[in-house]
Simulated scan of single mutants.
Amino acid sequence: MPRIVLPSPPVDSEQTRSFRTHASYIRAFRELALGNSGSPLEETLAGLHASATPILFKPGGLPSSCDRDQLLACLRRAWATARLLEHTHALAQDSEIIRLANSWGTIQAYYVMYGAAQALMVAKGDTRPQMHEPTKRRYVGLWTSCGLQIAPWTLAAAAPGTRLADADGILGGPGRALNVDLHPWVAWQGEQAWDIAARALRSTRQLLIEERLAKRRQEKLTARKKQWRLDQQACAASGRKPEPEPKVGRLTTAEREEAAAGFRPTTIADYLFRLRIKANYKDVTVFSDGPTSDSEAAQVGADLVALASATLLVHELRIAAIIGSSDLVKSMDAVLLQASGEAIGGMAHRRDLHAGLS
Rank of each mutant, 00 (worst) to 15 (best):
Y25R: 04
P265F: 04
P59S: 06
L148T: 12
P134G: 10
E191H: 09
Q227E: 15
A234D: 12
H349Q: 11
A236R: 14
A156Q: 09
V286M: 03
H315K: 11
V180N: 06
Y281K: 09
E316W: 15
G38V: 06
R83L: 11
Q233G: 09
T135H: 06
P265S: 07
S13V: 02
L75D: 09
G173M: 01
R350V: 13
A90P: 02
T252D: 12
L91H: 08
L201E: 14
Q192M: 06
P40W: 00
I98K: 07
A165P: 08
S340K: 15
T222P: 04
A92S: 14
G141D: 15
E296Y: 01
Y25Q: 01
E245F: 01
G169P: 03
M113L: 15
V248D: 13
P174L: 02
T81N: 05
A297Q: 05
K278Q: 09
L164K: 14
P242L: 01
D195Q: 05
R176Q: 12
P291V: 01
S64F: 04
T266M: 03
I55T: 12
K282Y: 04
D270L: 00
L72C: 03
T162R: 10
A198G: 08
Q149L: 08
N102T: 08
L272A: 06
E316K: 10
A90M: 02
V5S: 08
H349E: 13
D352N: 14
D67F: 02
R3H: 09
V186T: 13
V314E: 13
L178I: 05
R137Y: 13
D168I: 00
P10W: 04
S64L: 05
A259W: 07
S37G: 10
G35E: 04
I209F: 09
D294K: 03
D94S: 11
L251G: 05
A236H: 13
A348N: 13
I55P: 06
Y114I: 00
Y139F: 15
